[in-house]
Amino acid sequence: MYGASVDEVKQDGAEDPQKLAEFEARIARGEKIEPGDWMPADYRKQLIRMISQHAHSEIVGMLPEGAWITRAPSLKRKLILLAKVQDEAGHGQYLYHAAETLGISREEMVDMLLTGAAKYSNIFNYPTLNWADIGTIGWLVDGAAIMNQTMLARCSYGPYSRAMVRICMEENFHKKQGQEQVILLSQGTPEQRKMMQDAITRWWWPTLMMFGPHDTDSPNSPLLVRWGIKTRSNDELRQDFVNQMAPDLMALGLTLPDPDLKYNEASGNWEFGEIDWDEFWRVVKGDGPLNADRMAARRKAHEDGQWVREALAAYAEKQQALN
């Protein structure tokens, strides 16, 4: 899972113009940039920021769903959910690796997450309050993430692009699992339908926020587009998402919490109301429902695991001394 990033880009502009021109020509030809190739310092910096944010989102994203593994209402759902949360750990793992090829270590990145210096997707600061949240996260949240990820699977940096191809495949699977669960609950008993509606009401707007600020408030976009990292804008992706989701959700008899939502015959788009941007920035700045809890859980896992990591390192050292 993943949301769009919100940090600002500053271009230092001190690059060798000839090398920069060659680099941009390579990207224009559709070549992938590989570790070892020349790249502008800003390209490296932007990628590290994006990939590590993305990796952190996967890891923090394990928490809201993971809380329901022990409570899943059938063996089948328990298996599906456990394997899904595990996939997210896997995605974090692939992404930390992709970022490491740019010259930063996983330890440094984790440190930045735990000290609050690095961000992760806002969406995971919202609580999972009933079982229907699990299907909703699978279909809507992963569905929104896939819009971004499909774009990033074509990005110009080889290792990131390759990680994304693998991740997209698995996320599409999660989306299907989530959709199947939402379908079942929305057509189920009155209690199930009630919990399903409650989940959609709470998650709809935070999901739309995952695409990030409006294009006009997203200063990094032009540079990221030129360097082949982003190929589509936040607003374009968000509109595609609403077009895809709104009719399906309504077909299931679910109500979306947006009185302004309506189909525009002329444009073929589902028009929707304005996002509560105050809420968006508030959560980005740390004042979400669960920012502090999420970080406390990550810190605790990290601290509780310290002795294990030390033991492994000590053992490896002793073995090496023997050989």
Binding site: V85, Q93, G305
Partner: peptide, 19 residues
């Protein structure tokens, strides 16, 4: 064992243990 999911001491081991 599923209680460890998301809380294991090492990322690789989180994945292994979920397996």
């Amino acid at each position: 064992d599923a209680e460890w999911c998301g809380h294991a001491p090492i990322l690789e081991e989180d994945i292994a243990f979920a397996n």
